[in-house]
């Protein structure tokens, strides 16, 4: 079997990307709990978190997730290097906005922003909860780790609220192009299916960006 590197790399991007897209849906659905009244949310959210941490299947998925983020980043880098080599000289004038969407031309920049977001997001939550770095996390009445409190405190810092909300814009743009592009990369070419895919991608990107973006604001005002 002969593997074409151009396609292999893009396929890896697409597969890891799609996996991350799927993860975001699950992540968002759970986070919707945060929109409930404060104490109800605390109980449910913390219970859910504990269940997640203790489920062995989820642990495997978690590793797949870490791997996906790492591979997605590495292949993005490799692909970008090759692409820059393929176009070593840029045009003095280039009106890309007239023939394509801005996001599709700037997936790299959007990706970097998303990556910065992920790193900070991980430091805020994952590092504290999982690795015990930073301030220790307390327990709620039910004896679950009080992740809700971590979230609540964080989203009462106005800078974090702005950061978490604003960075959903590049995420949304990245997802809007990324989702449909991934399907095409993997060889989905059904004509009407592609029209549908474009719509689904738009709805998906809006739901994810608005969904994640609104939570810090709601929590801030609770």
């Amino acid at each position: 079997m002969k593997i074409n590197p151009l396609f292999f790399r893009k396929n890896m991007m697409a597969l890891t990307g799609l996996f991350l897209c799927l993860f975001l849906i699950v992540h968002l659905s759970a986070n919707c709990l945060l929109l409930l009244p404060k104490e109800t949310a605390r109980g449910l959210y913390n219970a859910y978190s504990t269940w997640l941490r203790e489920n062995p299947l989820i642990m495997i998925i978690a590793y797949a997730l870490y791997l996906s983020i790492i591979l997605h980043t590495i292949y993005a880098l490799v692909i970008t290097i090759r692409n820059k080599q393929a176009k070593p000289v840029k045009y003095a004038v280039n009106h890309t906005q007239e023939n394509s969407r801005w996001a599709s031309q700037n997936m790299g920049i959007l990706g970097i922003l998303v990556l910065i977001f992920i790193v900070i997001h991980l430091v805020n939550f994952w590092a504290r909860v999982k690795l015990g770095i930073g301030e220790e996390v307390g327990y709620d009445a039910a004896g679950n780790k009080d992740i809700y409190e971590v979230t609540y405190t964080l989203f009462h810092n106005v800078y974090y609220v702005i950061f978490y909300t604003l960075l959903m814009i590049p995420l949304g743009l990245h997802l809007h192009h990324g989702l449909q592009s991934a399907f095409k990369t993997l060889g989905f070419y059904h004509k009407r299916g592609l029209i549908l895919l474009a719509k689904v991608s738009l709805i998906y990107a809006i739901v994810v960006a608005v969904g994640f973006g609104i939570i810090p604001i709601v929590v801030y005002f609770q």
Partner: peptide, 22 residues
Amino acid sequence: MTTQMEVEGFGHCSFTGACEVE
């Protein structure tokens, strides 16, 4: 054909869609 495309030094397709417009 795709192998040759790689050998010639062309880049990856990002599906920006600019090509079909031009």
